[in-house]
């Protein structure tokens, strides 16, 4: 009899993603779903979907889901978590959602040490609305609304969310990873696992910022977009763990 050595995670529903070919959302969805399945917490997890390309996340994550207004996912997650403190609550948000319209919600959720986990996809663009500039768009990067490249005199500077949130006492675990090759995909999964474990142990706010590609709106092939990510995004958005509270480290070891 054939031996099954790999199968689709039960954390995802059996429907095809709507994402563009080569987009990193599919990979990160799978990683989150695998982690929830491996930690055996799917039955007590409630996910919050944002507005943006991942607005349909509620169709894919095979668990209770609530869809939030643009930028408000951390507030919606707070409401759910306060009602069910023993459940696991996560948000899945893009950079327009989290780093522009939702800055107040993410900063204060972290400052409160809200015991939720945030998966933050940074692909430097508004994907769903067709490739406009985001708070994370790099200087000089061309988008639909920075057709000559982002100019610091006009648009200011890109926001480093992981570094900013790591200054807050309530943040227990903050990391930035990327998904441009298999070793980094594995590192991303480890960070996501650590983030959910942080929540399970009640240690406070956890977030993994994932550098992701958007081949469609970057006008690149998927492979070129991954190269571009590695060469341009990683130098400005360094990878690593920015905040690991002592308790997280103690519990992880």
């Amino acid at each position: 009899m054939d031996k099954v050595i790999a199968s689709r995670t039960k954390g995802l529903t059996d429907v095809p993603f709507h994402y563009c070919p080569g987009c990193a959302h599919g990979i990160v969805h799978r990683l989150v779903a695998e982690v929830l399945e491996e930690l055996e917490i799917m039955e007590k997890t409630i996910g919050v979907a944002p507005v943006g390309c991942s607005v349909f996340a509620y169709n894919y994550f095979n668990m209770d889901m609530q869809q939030a207004p643009h930028g408000r996912a951390p507030a919606v997650a707070t409401g759910i978590k306060r009602v069910h403190p023993h459940s696991v609550v996560f948000t899945y948000q893009g950079d327009g959602d989290l780093a522009a319209i939702g800055t107040a919600e993410i900063v204060h959720a972290a400052a409160r040490g809200e015991n939720i986990t945030v998966i933050f996809i940074n692909n430097t663009t508004y994907g769903m609305t067709g490739g406009q500039s985001a708070p994370t768009t790099l200087l000089g990067q061309k988008t639909k609304t920075t057709p000559l490249g982002r100019d610091k005199e006009v648009n200011g500077y890109p926001i480093r969310v992981a570094e900013m949130l790591s200054t807050l006492e309530g943040a227990a675990y903050i990391a930035r990873t990327a998904v441009f090759d298999p070793p980094h995909v594995n590192k991303t999964k480890k960070a996501i696992t650590k983030a959910f474990n942080t929540q399970l142990k009640g240690l406070g706010f956890s977030m993994v910022e994932v550098l992701a590609n958007c081949p469609t709106n970057w006008n690149m092939t998927p492979l070129d977009s991954l190269e571009w990510l590695k060469e341009n995004m990683v130098p400005y958005y360094p990878l690593g763990e920015f905040k690991v509270s002592e308790e997280v480290d103690r519990n992880a070891s």
Binding site: A68, V76, G79, V83
Partner: peptide
């Protein structure tokens, strides 16, 4: 639970989350 939100925008979305989670809020 009493929670002072960072804005009314946030407060009503906390209400949305808690109401969805089944609470009288």
């Amino acid at each position: 639970v009493y929670l002072q939100a960072e804005s009314e925008v946030s407060a009503i979305n906390m209400v949305y989350g808690a109401a969805g989670a089944g609470a009288r809020v």
